[in-house]
């Protein structure tokens, strides 16, 4: 363009020769038309934000890392969570921050001879731990495996025979193995997941950024991601909640089995054990020589740590009655 183009139409600046910086009616309309449509498109492209319902409160946004929270801070956090849950589910929960007990290291033992593959543990876990029902989040997967093989590739999650157990197969429930050397903890870029002194690997849902690295790192498919806002019927909420355990999660955070912190750190057995009709599940303190799990690891001959060769050193043992 030449510095002073000839005015062939009324479109050029200062059609009447008003000098630089002026704008005639036509060019104003045109420019503002383009601008307005651009703004409209931009606003419309943000339409998915209309679906956003739970905003992060300022208090949550400013919250410190779990390990830096003082007792007072934690009380405030628990109070905030209580209010949020009450608002959302119309139920007053008892949210606590259960700490690991001294001299306790949890171990899980599962008797593959006894498991009949009824999947009751899966659903007791969902009910206890306030998992989303639709879309479904489940911490336990039961693999149906052919006898005589430990090849995970042959495992079937989706069996639906009218009755179980089926002849020629054994059933292997898989959940978080609470590894002594957890790969999921190593990859977390923000330290939102860590191993506690009683052996439970926990997640702070307020700190998780949802990058899903831990899901990729876990060799046991133990971690689940909340792709959408979890949906739980109001009458199905378990009001006994723990900060690092079963309090309701948000969209965009990871979750997984935490050995029912709200139960086990209060001395109780986990929910999956309590519902097992075959008594295949055993849980307890490995540091106590009189515990059931100590007895099993001392006396039972064959026990399997899943994918032992990876060096994750699970605290979850599979054994057989022989």
């Amino acid at each position: 363009m030449t510095p002073n183009p000839p005015c062939s139409s009324g479109a050029c600046n200062g059609g009447g020769g008003n000098g630089n910086g002026g704008m005639n009616r036509r060019s104003f309309l045109r420019t503002s038309g383009v601008l307005a449509s651009g703004i409209a498109a931009l606003a419309a492209s943000l339409a998915p934000l209309r679906d956003l319902t739970d905003y992060t409160s300022a208090a949550e946004f400013m919250q410190k890392h779990y390990k830096e929270l003082s007792k007072d801070d934690m009380d405030k956090v628990l109070d905030r969570i209580t209010r949020e849950v009450e608002k959302q589910y119309a139920i007053r929960p008892h949210v606590k921050d259960y700490k690991p007990m001294d001299g306790v290291e949890f171990v899980y033992c599962l008797n593959l001879t006894r498991c009949i593959g009824c999947r009751k543990c899966v659903h007791a876990c969902v009910a206890e731990n306030n998992q989303s029902r639709d879309p479904e989040i489940q911490y336990i997967r039961v693999l149906k495996m052919p006898h005589g093989s430990f090849d995970m590739e042959k495992g079937d999650h989706n069996y639906s025979t009218p009755t179980v157990p089926e002849k020629g197969f054994f059933y292997m429930p898989v959940q978080c193995q609470q590894c002594k050397n957890p790969p999921c903890v190593k990859v977390c870029p923000v330290e939102a997941t860590w191993q506690e002194t009683d052996g439970i690997t926990v997640i702070d849902y307020d700190w998780c950024i949802g990058c899903r690295y831990c899901e990729a790192a876990c060799p046991y498919f133990a971690r689940r991601f909340n792709w959408t806002k979890p949906s739980i019927p109001k009458d199905s909420i378990n009001p006994e909640m723990s900060y690092l355990g079963n309090r309701p999660r948000k969209q965009g955070v990871m979750e997984k089995c935490h050995f029912c912190i709200q139960r086990t750190r209060a001395g109780k057995y986990p929910a999956c054990l309590e519902v097992c009709p075959a008594g295949a599940r055993k849980f307890g303190n490995i540091l106590d020589p009189n515990s059931e799990v100590s007895y099993i690891l001392r006396t039972k001959k064959v026990f399997v740590q899943l994918k032992e060769e990876l060096g994750t050193s699970p605290r979850f043992f599979y054994y057989f009655d022989v």
């Binding site: 309590e274 097992c276 009655d321």
Partner: peptide, 25 residues
């Protein structure tokens, strides 16, 4: 023998016997 040790069959309630009772079927 396993049952007496709480290992055969389900043992419910409290694993920490100092905090509560357990029951065995």
């Amino acid at each position: 023998r396993d049952w007496e040790a709480g290992v055969h069959g389900r043992t419910s309630g409290f694993w920490d016997r100092g905090l509560g009772d357990y029951s065995r079927l």
